[in-house]
Computed example of a mutant assay.
Amino acid sequence: TTRKNDGCLVRGNRGEELFRWVLNQRGLTDTAIQNVINGWHESWRRHRQRLGQFDEYWISLGRRREEILKVEDPELVIANFISQLEAEDATNANQANCRSALSTLFQLQGFKKEKINGVALQQIMKKPQAGMRKPIKEEQIWNYDQLLKYIKSKSDQKVQLSEIEFLGIVIATIMGYSTLRLIEVHRAIVSKLPKGCWQVKTAMFKGHDTGVTVIFRPLDDLSICPTQWLSCWKNRRKKKDEKLPVWWLYSKNRVASYEETSKAVHIVMKACKIPAGYTVTSIRSSSMTKSIDQGATKTEINRATRHRKGSQAVANHYDKNLNDKIRTRLAKL
């Protein structure tokens, strides 16, 4: 495992070095390049890995890095690279991510999309893209009440909880009652409002590329209420630490990383006896499955999940109803 991690680190560093070098050659300053990287957020880690993979391929052809700047037909380069990956039995996701990272690199060099994504490349990508599509099928999902019952059992034991498990419960309750993704919760700004309410303000980059604000109000059962758990999480702090970021870990003396928040939620899921193999995102699925079983309307589900752009437009401009009703039902065990 250590050797594999070391290999990923080396490949990622190569990819980042290539990326920075190409943009620097175009004339972008280090500050401008860093701003481009920041715009990718957590997906930058995937981009740098795939660019490192391309750098290895390019050098294996006996080509020098300087020759990338002289490429006249970027579609040809990408098509040959993806075809080589397919011959090496690379996964569909790997091929798609490599295509995405390399296309972006050439766009940042100044090539237009039409010059990059031609008919030949589109034909080559049909197979991996088809392989990545999730089929519509019936799947068994764990019962959301498993999570709620566990959280309820820990309500009177907050002092005994480890910091990482406490973090996992707080994030799990937010995800379950808001259907926000983990990355959206991780980047969120959380603030207390009057009357015991809490506001979670974050940005959605998947699907909608917009800001979203969720307001939690106290539920009848405070033991499984996000407002109660957020209050207790914040009350652990000393007065001088009140302005620290919401996901601050005293044990690490820094903000929890995305990986650490994921690990924290997985610890909670394991404690709930949720079968191994389920991702953190399954909290969203389980929450919405319970809402559907409780008779939530299609409009309520669309509004709560923010899946469809059409319903998002309605929610933004016309549908001002709150999601309190659906959260109240979710809290019923």
Rank of each mutant, 00 (worst) to 15 (best):
V159I: 01
M125D: 09
I82H: 02
N92S: 13
F54H: 07
I59T: 15
S43A: 08
G52C: 09
S100K: 00
W40R: 13
L147F: 12
Q95I: 01
N92P: 02
K137S: 06
I82Q: 01
I68D: 00
R65D: 09
Q34T: 00
R63N: 12
I78Q: 11
E42Q: 14
L102T: 01
Q160K: 11
K112M: 11
P128V: 04
W40P: 06
R63Y: 09
N117L: 15
T91I: 04
Q109S: 09
N80V: 03
E56Y: 07
I151P: 07
N117F: 12
G39N: 15
A130N: 12
K152G: 07
R65E: 15
V119S: 14
V119F: 10
K126L: 14
E72A: 05
Q34F: 06
D73F: 13
R48G: 04
E86R: 06
A93F: 01
C98H: 02
G52D: 07
N143H: 14
Y57Q: 02
F106H: 00
P135H: 09
E139D: 14
R99G: 05
V119H: 15
D73I: 02
F81G: 03
R65Q: 15
G131P: 06
K154W: 00
E138P: 04
D156W: 06
K134E: 14
M125F: 07
L105T: 05
G52V: 08
R46Q: 11
D89I: 03
A87M: 05
W58G: 07
N80G: 05
Q146C: 10
Q107V: 08
G62N: 07
L102D: 04
K127Q: 13
N92A: 13
I78M: 12
P135S: 09
Y144E: 05
M132E: 15
L147P: 03
E66Q: 15
K113P: 03
L85C: 14
Y144F: 12
E86K: 07
W142N: 04
K113G: 01
L105P: 08
N97G: 11
R45V: 10
E114F: 11
Q129G: 05
R99A: 08
I141K: 14
Q140K: 15
V159R: 14
I78G: 07
R45H: 13
A130W: 04
Q84R: 06
Q84Y: 13
L121I: 09
E66W: 12
R45E: 13
I37L: 10
R99P: 02
F81I: 00
N35V: 00
K113N: 08
K154C: 05
R63L: 03
S103P: 04
L102H: 00
A93G: 06
Q146F: 09
S60W: 01
I78S: 10
W58S: 05
L102Q: 00
R50D: 11
I68T: 03
V119W: 13
A101Y: 00
I124E: 00
Y144G: 03
L85V: 04
Q84T: 06
